[in-house]
Computed example of a mutant assay.
Amino acid sequence: MAAPRPGPHPPGDFIPAAEGTGIILRLTEHVLELALRQMRLWSDAGHAVPVAVNLSTRCLLDAGLPDLVGRLLTEHGVPAALLRLEVTESAVMGDATRCTDVLKRLHDLGVKLSIDDFGTGYTSMAHLRRLPVDELKIDRSFVLGMTTASHDAVLVRTAIDLGHNLGLTVVAEGVEGAEHVAALRALGCDIAQGYHYARPMGGEQMSELLDRVGTIHDGSVPVV
């Protein structure tokens, strides 16, 4: 067994183990606590910054999750609309009935919900239409290939059109170059995220950036 390495670890190193042992529920609660605490600090400094937290399948099957989220929002005094909770297609489709019930209760709190990594799962259009989500995030693998592979470009265009027809905001993940920005702008994509704009950073670094550029009102980076 390899010795633990100091420093940050990517999610792929520990999330599968956390999901397999059930620790993922406690880990998600801890992450929510940290996120909402930081959001409160930013809000007190005049920056209403939305933050997204990913949810696993186990979390979506936990009927107590909406109550937990509601309690933490109240404790930290954070508006529900600033919290984004992201779920994958495969997580929702694992047990669609139970997951949809939890999502509806979260949506009733005012929390914004996103379908993450769209295009890599198997959500039917009929089921997607019934999900109480606000945002559709196109998987980075398609965005990265859209300027060099015609089939990726078709998939991105289709996802944008589908999202807009369902009244959803569409986000492109994995935007790494100006060529991606230009292509997404031409397709009418709403928001872009990726290394083209910024690398991952800690709370203190983000606070310094916010102090320099001013308040981000909706937390999005329009495709410009």
Rank of each mutant, 00 (worst) to 15 (best):
A91Y: 00
A45H: 11
V69Q: 05
V143E: 03
E33N: 15
C99M: 03
E75Y: 04
A182F: 09
D44N: 11
D218E: 10
G77W: 05
F14V: 04
D161A: 13
T215H: 09
A96P: 07
L210N: 08
V53Q: 02
T123I: 06
R5S: 13
W42E: 00
S124W: 11
L166Y: 08
L128Y: 05
D139F: 00
S90R: 09
E208T: 13
M125S: 07
P4D: 14
R5T: 15
Y122V: 02
D152H: 14
H217G: 12
L187T: 12
V221C: 13
L209R: 15
R37M: 01
S207T: 13
E29V: 08
V49E: 08
A91V: 03
V31R: 01
F118D: 03
P200I: 13
V221F: 09
P132A: 05
H107A: 15
D108N: 11
P6E: 09
R84Y: 11
H217T: 15
I160T: 06
V49N: 04
H217C: 09
L34A: 08
A149D: 15
H9A: 15
L73M: 10
D134F: 02
V221L: 10
G194D: 11
G121L: 03
P6G: 12
G22A: 12
Q38M: 03
P222L: 02
L25F: 01
R26D: 15
S141L: 05
G77T: 02
D13K: 06
G174P: 13
V213K: 12
A96M: 01
L210M: 05
P11L: 02
R5E: 12
A149R: 14
H196C: 08
H151A: 10
G214V: 07
S220L: 13
K112Q: 14
G22W: 12
R212A: 14
R130K: 14
H30G: 04
V133F: 01
T120P: 03
L82Q: 05
R5M: 13
G70H: 07
R129F: 08
V133L: 01
G188I: 13
A96L: 08
A80Y: 12
D161S: 12
D13V: 10
D134A: 00
C59P: 00
A172L: 08
A186N: 10
P79K: 02
E179Y: 06
A186C: 08
M125E: 08
G163Y: 06
H76E: 03
V53P: 03
G219L: 02
R71T: 15
E33Y: 07
V51C: 03
R37Q: 07
I23H: 12
A48R: 14
I23R: 09
A48I: 11
P50I: 14
E33P: 03
H217S: 12
M1F: 13
D95I: 01
L155N: 03
A126D: 11
V143G: 05
A35F: 05
A2V: 13
P6A: 12
